[in-house]
Each structure stands twice: as C-alpha cells, then as structure tokens.
C-alpha cells in the first residue's frame, strides 16, 4: 500500500508576505500590466517573486483556496464509508485515497500561501462559510456504490480540470497540479473498478451501481461550473491563462471520455438526450438543471450544513491539541 509521508511542521514559520507594489503610479501600472499580459501570451510562467496585477493575485488566491478547501471537504463524503468498506482491500484503498486528498489540500494550501495568505486564514474563511468549495461535496454518500461513483465521476471530472490547470500560468499552482494528477488517476481507476465489480455482481449490486450513477451524473457535470456566458470571471482568467479552456469545453471533454466507460460496464447514463453527434464528433447532451446548481452553491444542497458542521467540529475539537503543540514549541524555544 502506498503511503504518504508529510513532515509535520508544528511551529510553522509564517511565510513572508509577498510585497505589493503600492507605489506604482497609474500609468506605470497599466504599462506593467501590459508587459505582464504580453509575457503571459509569450508563455512565461509566473513565479511568486514576479510582479503581478492585484486582480491576478486575487483571482488565483480565490481559485486555489477554493480548490484546497474542496480537497479537504471532499474527504468527508468518502470518509463516511471507511468504517463500512466491504473488504480489507477496499478499506485500505479507500483510506489511502482519502489520505491523498488531505495531501492535495496541503500542497494546494502551501501553493496558495505564496500569494500572501496564511493557511490558517484560508481555513477560517472556509469554516465561517465565506469561502466556497466544490458543490459536489454537498451531496450525500448513501450506498457503497457512491464511493465508486465519486472516484470514477468526481475524480474523473477533477482530472479533466486539473490536467489543464497543470499548464496554467502560475508556477506553484501548475506544479501542484502536476503532482496531484498522477494520484487522481489511481482515484479514478479504483472508483471505476468498484462499479465494475458491482455491475458483474448480484442484481442488488447492479441496482446499487445504477442508482449511484443516476444520482451523481448530473452533479458531476455541474462541477465544471456554469456556461461561460454566465461565469463572471472567465474572460480575465482566460486572458491570464489561469484558465485555458472554457467550462463548456471541459465539460464536453469529460462527457466524451466517460460515456464509453459507462457503456463498457453496462451502466446507463441518465440522460435521454445523450447522443453521439457525427458532425461535431462529440456527444450531445440534455439540459443541466442550473437552478439546482445555484441552490447548492448558495448553501441549500442536501449536505451543505452538515459538511460545514463537520469541518467546524473537527477544528474546534482539535483546538486544544494545536494550542498544546504551540505552547510546547514555545517552551522548547525558550529553553
């Protein structure tokens, strides 16, 4: 079994905040910004010490912290089945998988810290409900098949997203994505394998798998976000190569690669309009229920309250431990 080793940094030094260039005059700024935009067009990778427009920094910090929060909140629905995994092998794989997500959270938090915000501050924003995370994790895991569906569909969608982010213009983010993508492939495979086993099992197992498919398919498509026409930040992000493709492009890419995988194990995709289009060389698909998406994003999904409570409980429950570690580290420094 693969194990992840991360050094515990208890008395973590606060990273130096990246100095913001506040003395630049307005026309200077637009000149700098033009040069910045040009360099990105020329394929330059931006590093923490490089000058960057404040809006670029802010957008990236928002995206990266949301991504890190998603990894961490994403541990909850899957963690829900660790104690009930149906074999020792599945239990070990699931623990390793959820553990990877904790590692992803860590890498992305530290990559985001290079933009000038401390991890603890980002976590406070998550706990207070101010920061968002992927809406998919506000759905419940009701049966074992859901663990398969998450690995296959949710991590599958994440791979499509992250493979592209690995080529984004911000160096620390792109490197974090590169590292993560390798692990995501294992997540994707183990999920698909869970469903493949169910689909060649008893009738009850097949029903369980199809039911999970029915419940997770549409929310998985929503993971790519609303159509770019309704995505307020898209234009800037595309210009800065923080995004390289539109939400709709990526969604289409995900559908195209997933449909055949479903067919291969006999799962039906719950969309009557799904059909191969010979002209576009893509699958056509039905209307996504964006009302539902916005409901969930705005806190009214089936598990929003639960997920936030679980994170807050864990945080509160561990406060005495973190306090003790800090106090102990301080004592050792003095002595």
């Amino acid at each position: 079994m693969r194990r992840l080793v991360v050094t515990i940094i208890l008395a973590k030094l606060i990273r130096p905040v990246i100095p913001m260039d506040i003395n630049v005059k307005m026309d200077d700024l637009s000149e700098k910004e033009n040069a910045f935009n040009d360099s990105i067009q020329a394929g330059k990778v931006i590093e923490p010490k490089d000058w960057m427009p404040e809006k670029y920094r802010k957008q990236l910090l928002r995206m990266m912290s949301q991504h890190a929060h998603s990894e961490v909140v994403g541990m909850l629905p899957e963690g829900n089945w660790i104690s009930r995994a149906p074999s020792l092998a599945r239990k070990a794989i699931l623990i390793a998988k959820v553990q990877d997500e904790a590692g992803h959270g860590l890498y992305i938090y530290s990559a985001a810290e290079t933009l000038g915000m401390d991890r603890s501050e980002m976590i406070d924003q998550l706990l207070s409900g101010k920061a968002k995370y992927s809406s998919i994790f506000n759905y419940p895991t009701l049966t074992w098949a859901d663990i398969g569906a998450i690995g296959w569909l949710v991590d599958g969608a994440a791979i499509v997203n992250q493979t592209v982010l690995a080529k984004c213009s911000y160096g620390p983010y792109s490197r974090a994505m590169l590292r993560i993508c390798r692990e995501e492939n294992f997540h994707n495979k183990q999920g698909y394998q869970i469903l493949a086993y169910l689909m060649r099992g008893t009738q009850e197992q097949k029903d369980m798998a199809q039911d999970a498919m029915n419940r997770w398919w549409w929310p998985a498509l929503m993971m790519f976000g609303p159509s770019d026409k309704e995505s307020p930040n898209s234009a800037d992000l595309l210009k800065w190569k923080v995004k390289l493709f539109t939400n709709d492009d990526l969604r289409q890419r995900f559908i195209d690669r997933t449909v055949e995988q479903a067919q291969a194990i006999g799962l039906k995709i719950p969309d009557d309009k799904l059909k191969w289009n010979e002209e576009t060389r893509h699958y056509d698909f039905g209307e996504i229920n964006w009302d539902e998406f916005f409901q969930v994003i705005n806190g009214n999904g089936p598990c929003n309250k639960l997920r936030l409570k679980q994170r807050n409980d864990a945080h509160a429950n561990g406060q005495w431990v973190r306090d003790a570690a800090k106090a102990y580290a301080a004592k050792k420094k003095v002595n």
């Binding site: 991360v6 050094t7 515990i8 940094i9 961490v72 541990m75 909850l76 899957e78 963690g79 660790i82 623990i95 959820v98 553990q99 904790a102 959270g105 860590l106 938090y109 679980q310 409980d313 864990a314 429950n317 561990g318 406060q319 431990v321 973190r322």
Partner: peptide, 8 residues
C-alpha cells in the same frame, strides 16, 4: 480520517 486536529 477527515476529522483530525490538523491536516498533517
């Protein structure tokens, strides 16, 4: 798993 005092 998922409920520790710190991510580490």
């Amino acid at each position: 798993t998922g409920h520790g005092p710190i991510l580490e």
